[in-house]
């Protein structure tokens, strides 16, 4: 649990972050979105004190984050940034081992952790451990960056546009990996981005920032249905709303009883994917199957249309 209480950061006369208060529930993904210069990165960097606030407090699990030295605090909080920030003179294994080494873990424990994380990120430990970062592709570097952030098993992971430098295909994969990792470790993730698509895909709660203030802090559905201001509405993109609404719901929730012809669609996919499949195949309905292959019913064009409409 992260409790931010009227935190303010001023540079000279300008307040980059202006009296922001918010509570971030444990084991959730919170995405902070906003335009450049909105203060979203500064807000996140005050959580691990890379930026010291001008006023206000931040409590992490009830303890003031200024009760221990900044570097000790940061060793307990994972940190991943755009362009990965790997150390070019250290191997992948040494990069991942950085924080455990700083914490003075035993060698065998560090080696086991490095191996576990590389496997978790689908990188063969024997092949990738001894390589240098420049020998990896962009997507692999990014995965190593996140693995390094998670090496000391932090409860909290801060991510600053972690997927910004990736191409769309790899980015989508990286986002799905992150969701899986979050489920696996139950980490509380705070992620900063300007990509609304990413925000709606990942977030349990979204905080929209503008000119140093939080204009809306809500669950994605709530934000779509009731945008607090015109700015939030613009940011979401008025034309995108029905599709975003579908993209945050699973096909399983839209499944109806009945039979249908054609290529079945997985219950875990998003309703947006189902709409896309329906439109592309030119059918009114498609069968829905569960992870085990069992038929769960069907999803229909009319049903999805009702779900995409503004709730009354």
């Amino acid at each position: 649990m992260i409790e931010i209480d009227s935190i303010t950061k001023r540079y000279g006369e300008t307040a980059v972050v202006d009296s922001v208060s918010m509570t971030i529930a444990p084991h959730t993904i919170t995405v902070i979105v906003g335009t450049s210069g909105s203060g979203k990165t500064t807000l996140m960097r005050m959580i691990n004190r890379l930026v010291e606030p001008t006023s206000g407090t931040i409590l992490i699990d009830g303890a003031d984050n200024r009760s221990i030295p900044g570097y000790e605090l940061r060793r307990r909080i994972g940190y991943a940034i755009q362009g990965h920030g790997l150390f070019p003179h250290r191997t992948v294994a040494e990069n991942i081992a950085t924080v455990p080494t700083l914490l003075g873990w035993e060698k065998s424990r560090i080696a086991a952790k490095v191996k576990e994380l590389l496997s978790l990120f689908q990188l063969d430990p024997a092949a990738f451990g001894p390589r240098y970062p420049h020998e990896l592709s962009g997507g692999q570097q990014q995965r190593v960056g996140v693995a390094r952030a998670l090496a000391a098993e932090p409860n909290i992971l801060l991510m600053d546009e972690p997927f910004g430098a990736l191409d769309p295909v790899i980015r989508a994969k990286a986002q799905d990996d992150l969701l899986a990792i979050q489920k696996h470790f139950g980490t509380t993730i705070v992620l900063v981005t300007h990509d609304m698509e990413e925000a709606f895909h990942l977030a349990d709660r979204i905080a929209v920032m503008d000119k140093g203030r939080i204009v809306q802090y809500a669950a994605p559905e709530e934000m779509l249905v009731n945008p607090a201001t015109d700015f939030v509405e613009t940011l979401i993109g008025a034309g995108e709303r029905p599709f975003r609404l579908l993209s945050i719901g699973a096909v399983a929730d839209a499944a109806e009883a009945g039979e249908a012809e054609g290529e079945p669609i997985a219950a875990a996919s998003s309703q947006r994917d189902a709409l896309s499949a329906l439109l592309w195949s030119g059918r009114e309905a498609l069968p829905v199957v569960g992870a085990d292959g069992a038929r769960l019913g069907r999803v229909t064009l009319a049903g999805l249309a009702r779900r995409a409409a503004r709730p009354q």
């Binding site: 570097y71 990965h84 920030g85």
Partner: peptide, 18 residues
């Protein structure tokens, strides 16, 4: 020295000396 590497070094808890 790459900015990213420096920022990451601070962000994951290295002291200035480290």
């Amino acid at each position: 020295v790459p900015r990213d590497a420096n920022d990451a070094a601070r962000g994951i808890g290295m002291t200035d000396g480290q």
